[in-house]
């Protein structure tokens, strides 16, 4: 990032403000392209993983090798579809809702540290910022459900909002032990604190952090509204939940946001618990960004594995799990990690 600023200010002769704006535009464009690529690759990956887990092939025809072009073809098809806005829908809100969902996700992507020094927004409270802006996703889902003027959509949105607001608490609490260890909310500081091989990753630092990692993982599945917690879009009872009325490009935005969020929570897991850009063996850190992305994709695979293995839970089971199991357990993790830190002399 410093190199980019230096290039625009010294070589191209811009003042500081112009350089900041240029770098911001470039980084936002890169993030958006990566996001769109993620959606295409993960759609194909999801169908192949689902096929593998259910002893079938998944898409095989489009393209030559294992149907690799299926997601590209789907994307082209969805771009050419008719854009239908229901007559009774609240038009401006109906149009704005998918953008709000995508915006919440894209804003959070800004604070992801891909490699040392390569982060779009190097904020002092990066982790807190990520969790704050993702709350826009909840509002986007509520807006979509309400503006559609459809009872299924409204039910789906209400379920989605209740679920995401509830699971935000264990999600946040599970990351607090790591913040205790690091003493900083800056995303780069959190990764730097995990240098030195797999045993220095926060997930293996102490037993409470290990439990906190799995709590984070469960909460992150609920936060992205994916199976077994996909009540907001249960096709058997709510048609398609909050995006029932959306078609074509606007539906594609929700689709894009789902996979962007999936990769986002996976990247946060990698950043906070799994050593970020550090390789498992110390001294082999020649490709930090690749290491980060590979770990992120493995977390996405784990997420898909869970989705296609476990049956959907009921709404009351979902709330029971969150309020009566996960929040107490994560609270114990916070206190336990603090005591462990003091006992092991790690407190600085």
């Amino acid at each position: 990032m410093e190199a980019m600023y230096a290039f625009f200010m010294d070589t191209a002769g811009m003042d500081e403000m112009a350089a900041h704006i240029t770098v911001a535009v470039i980084m936002a464009t890169i993030m958006f392209i990566v996001m769109a690529l993620c959606a295409i690759i993960f759609t194909w990956m999801e169908r192949k993983v689902a096929g593998f887990l259910q002893s079938r092939y998944g898409p095989m025809r489009t393209g030559r090798w294992h149907g690799w072009a299926q997601a590209v073809a789907d994307m082209l098809k969805i771009l050419g579809k008719e854009d239908i806005i229901p007559a009774e829908a609240d038009k401006p809100y109906f149009i704005f809702a998918p953008l709000l969902v995508l915006l919440g996700s894209l804003l959070a992507w800004a604070a992801i540290p891909w490699a040392p020094g390569f982060v779009a927004a190097d904020l002092d409270l990066g982790l807190f910022y990520i969790f704050a802006v993702t709350s826009l996703v909840v509002l986007g889902i509520l807006m979509a459900g309400w503006a559609s003027n459809n009872k299924w959509a409204l039910y789906g949105a209400a379920r989605g909002a209740a679920q995401m607001v509830s699971y935000e608490i264990p999600l946040l609490l599970a990351t607090i032990p790591v913040v205790l260890y690091t003493g900083s909310l800056n995303t780069q500081d959190i990764v730097i604190a995990q240098q030195g091989g797999v045993l220095n990753w926060f997930v293996f630092r102490d037993p409470f952090l290990f439990i906190a990692f799995w709590m984070y993982f469960i909460a992150s599945i609920a936060e992205t509204n994916r199976g077994p917690f996909d009540m907001p879009e249960t096709e058997s009872e709510l048609v398609a939940g909050y995006h029932t009325e959306y078609t074509g490009m606007r539906f594609a935005f929700f689709f894009l946001a789902e996979y962007a969020n999936l990769f986002l929570v996976s990247m946060i897991a990698v950043m906070v618990f799994l050593g970020g850009w550090w390789s498992p063996i110390p001294g082999l850190d020649f490709a930090p960004a690749a290491c980060f992305v590979v770990k992120g994709v493995l977390m996405v695979f784990l997420n898909m594995w869970v989705r296609w293995t476990l049956p959907r839970v009921r709404v009351d089971q979902l709330m029971h799990l969150c309020w009566k199991v996960m929040i107490p357990v994560t609270l114990v993790c916070v206190v336990g990690a603090g005591i462990w830190m003091m006992a092991s002399g790690a407190v600085g």
Partner: peptide, 15 residues
């Protein structure tokens, strides 16, 4: 402000 008011209070108001 974003966390509490947008993510918490506003969602509850709309709910």
């Amino acid at each position: 402000q974003v966390m509490v008011y947008v993510g918490g209070v506003l969602v509850l108001i709309l709910f």
